[in-house]
């Protein structure tokens, strides 16, 4: 039992990373019905920005908490700009084209980011600096262990979720985002600037992916230009599992997928881990394509 709970705790850490990335997929899909396959690579870029900011700030002698906080902020800000740029240059010109054209473009953008990163940074993995010393904690006198990094992941994820929830529910931009994703034409008739609202969505999604990138770097201590591929695909599975377009769905989907993966690994089938994730995708697509939280929508004709 304790072993199971231990794995559950580990699973929540992995799942938080998936969930943060999945949110970007789901929000962008919600608003322009595009699976942004370049999203995993924004996560990678965010991770690298986090790495270099953390190195720089640690060398400058800042205390670890501040290094973490500032690296997160820098990575998130710069990645949102990247997200906005990608949307403006690659997707916006295709807004009136078929969905498949935009999808193929997204795959192209994904390769572009990956191999530009290889060109600039080299293909080798780079070590992510230890921003904070890892400490182990024993939980309530049991053998269950929690390390400081897992606590950091949990706190970061919860804080970001609260901020996201606040933005989407209560700010003008958030309300505009919900309106545009529900009915773009009606939203335009309210005087909502649809282009700017779509940009805001990309900015928020990319910022969350960058946060996931920094957390990922701190957890696995190694980042490379192709690191975004697998987590990107897994987060896509998580978004579909939760119901693409649904924000709570992405969160639950991510946590669920992370937990399932970790439990599978802990049972000794770690080589099956990725297979199980994609089997989940196939099963969801067969039995409940709208996902756990998705609504069945009829195509408008």
């Amino acid at each position: 039992m304790e072993y199971f709970i231990q794995q559950l705790i580990n699973g929540i850490s992995v799942g938080s990373i998936y969930a943060l990335i999945a949110l970007g997929y789901t929000m962008v899909y919600g608003i322009i019905k595009l699976i942004n396959f370049a999203h995993g690579d924004v996560f990678m870029v965010g991770s690298f920005i986090g790495l270099y900011s953390a190195k720089f700030l640690a060398n400058a002698g800042l205390p670890p908490v501040l290094v973490l906080l500032l690296s997160l902020i820098i990575a998130m800000t710069m990645s949102s700009l990247l997200g906005i740029t990608i949307e403006r240059l690659a997707y916006k010109p295709l807004r009136k084209s078929t969905r498949i054209a935009a999808l193929i473009t997204a795959i192209g953008v994904s390769f572009l980011l990956e191999y530009v990163a290889v060109l600039i940074l080299g293909p080798q993995a780079k070590g992510f600096p230890d921003i904070m010393e890892k400490k182990q904690y024993q939980l309530f006198g049991t053998s269950i262990q929690v390390d400081s990094n897992q606590v950091m992941i949990l706190i970061t994820t919860i804080v970001l979720m609260i901020i996201l929830q606040y933005i989407v529910r209560y700010t003008k931009t958030g309300k505009a985002m919900r309106a545009v994703s529900f009915d773009m034409e009606a939203a335009r008739l309210m005087g909502i600037n649809v282009d700017r609202t779509i940009s805001a969505t990309f900015a928020i999604g990319s910022a969350l992916a960058a946060a996931a990138g920094v957390i990922f770097g701190m957890t696995y201590n190694s980042v490379d230009p192709l690191m975004g591929v697998m987590p990107g695909l897994k987060a896509f599975v998580a978004a579909v599992l939760g119901g693409i377009g649904s924000i709570p769905g992405a969160l639950v989907g991510g946590l669920l997928l992370g937990t399932v993966e970790t439990e599978i690994s802990s049972l000794g089938y770690s080589s099956w881990r990725d297979g199980v994730a994609f089997a989940v995708l196939i099963l969801i697509l067969i039995f409940k394509p709208s996902g756990l939280f998705g609504k069945n929508v009829r195509e408008k004709v």
């Binding site: 505009a176 309106a179 529900f182 939203a187």
Partner: peptide
């Protein structure tokens, strides 16, 4: 064309 997923108040606010 009301925003069915939002409250009455939010719809008016968007107006």
């Amino acid at each position: 064309r009301v925003f069915a997923n939002m409250s009455v108040e939010e719809n008016l606010e968007l107006g």
